[in-house]
């Protein structure tokens, strides 16, 4: 693994160049208190004063609405046309939890039926991570096996260091990117980058205001599906899509056709949420998850158990987005703590 150093001034110039050569996706301050990952034309649009974006950046690999193919049934014949493959992109500024979010989505869209839309974007997107420099009160990544300087999964990991930035190429793609733009970097001869990152990691580790211990929670859930606790939580849930739409690991989608003239149209998919009542409602009205209780339970069981059962990965990376955005304070950290307490009394 090779490390490089870039002066503070070079960052802007390098990002301007990247924006010219690729679709560059980076954090933008859209509005007061709203940071979104969006395509940018250059460094000037980027906002680096953020801990985490309001909505997770997964949307650039798994868009909220994705056109899958166009169809035409004109003249009684069926013609299906593929959509254009996306242009090569770079996401700059991914925080470690969001990189982990993408690693959490990978096995879903792989497996026996690799998903070509996801795969295409994934393979055409270089991930440039950015170590956190502060911890917010909702962050709990370390409790979910990650950390604010743990950039595993990125192609290139950037750390702020004295007088500039340190870059570590974690994959051959990251290495290629460095080579392509080598004028901006100098090799790190004295392991400054790694040392700085480790030091930062240690400093930040002490700043988490709330940690959770997931030990035994999954095992408890394996044995206990029915708990009055879910009634209690679900009672205040609004059944909205906030927690699942902003989450970096939620992957549910719906598929729908749009054909205004009845003959030519497009089949798309769009995010959907297990918190919505019609998510599982079948033709005829039968709904296997008829009340918010079953839906809330499904979400938390997916995060804490089902994803582990299927892919041996936690379904939550501890980004804390749902913690801050849920309008009724349904806080996954509290849920984990409560479940653990129930488990101990069981």
């Amino acid at each position: 693994m090779k490390a490089y150093i870039m002066t503070g001034d070079n960052l802007g110039a390098w990002l301007d160049t990247l924006a010219r050569d690729f679709t560059l996706i980076a954090p933008v301050k859209e509005e007061e208190n709203v940071i979104l990952f969006k395509p940018v034309k250059g460094f000037a649009e980027i906002n680096l004063n953020y801990t985490n974006s309001t909505v997770s950046p997964k949307g650039w690999i798994f868009p909220q609405t994705e056109e899958m193919f166009y169809f035409s049934t004109a003249g009684g014949q069926i013609n299906l046309t593929d959509v254009q493959a996306p242009r090569p992109a770079i996401i700059f500024g991914l925080r470690p939890c969001d990189i982990k979010g993408i690693l959490t989505l990978d096995p879903v869209f792989n497996g026996a039926y690799p998903d070509p839309y996801y795969q295409n974007r994934r393979e055409n997107t270089i991930l440039v991570g950015l170590c956190c420099t502060r911890v917010e009160r909702h962050c709990f990544c370390t409790s979910m096996g990650g950390g604010p300087t743990d950039g595993r999964g990125a192609d290139l990991l950037v750390t702020e260091i004295d007088g500039g930035y340190g870059l570590e190429a974690l994959t051959s793609r990251g290495e290629e990117l460095i080579h392509r733009y080598q004028g901006y970097f100098t090799p790190d001869q004295h392991s400054r980058v790694i040392l700085a990152r480790e030091e930062l990691g240690q400093k930040l580790a002490g700043q988490f205001t709330r940690t959770v211990d997931t030990t035994g929670v999954k095992e408890f859930l394996d044995q206990n599906f029915e708990l009055p606790y879910w009634d209690e939580i679900a009672r205040r849930c609004l059944g909205c899509g906030i927690c699942t739409y902003i989450c970096p690991t939620c992957h549910c989608f719906d598929i729908f056709d749009f054909a205004p003239d009845g003959e030519r149209g497009v089949r798309s998919r769009c995010w959907d949420s297990c918190m919505f009542s019609h998510f599982t409602r079948m033709a005829g009205g039968h709904n296997p998850r008829p009340t918010q209780k079953e839906r809330v339970r499904n979400r938390f069981l997916h995060k804490l158990k089902y994803h582990r059962d299927r892919y041996d990965l936690d379904g939550c990376v501890g980004c804390g987005r749902c913690v801050t955005k849920c309008p009724v304070n349904i806080d996954i950290r509290q849920i984990i703590a409560d479940l653990q307490e129930v488990a101990q009394h069981a």
Binding site: Q64, I242, Y245, S273, P327
Partner: peptide
């Protein structure tokens, strides 16, 4: 986001 939180509340 069309999360419909505004409607639901």
């Amino acid at each position: 986001l069309r999360c419909y939180a505004c409607r639901n509340v």
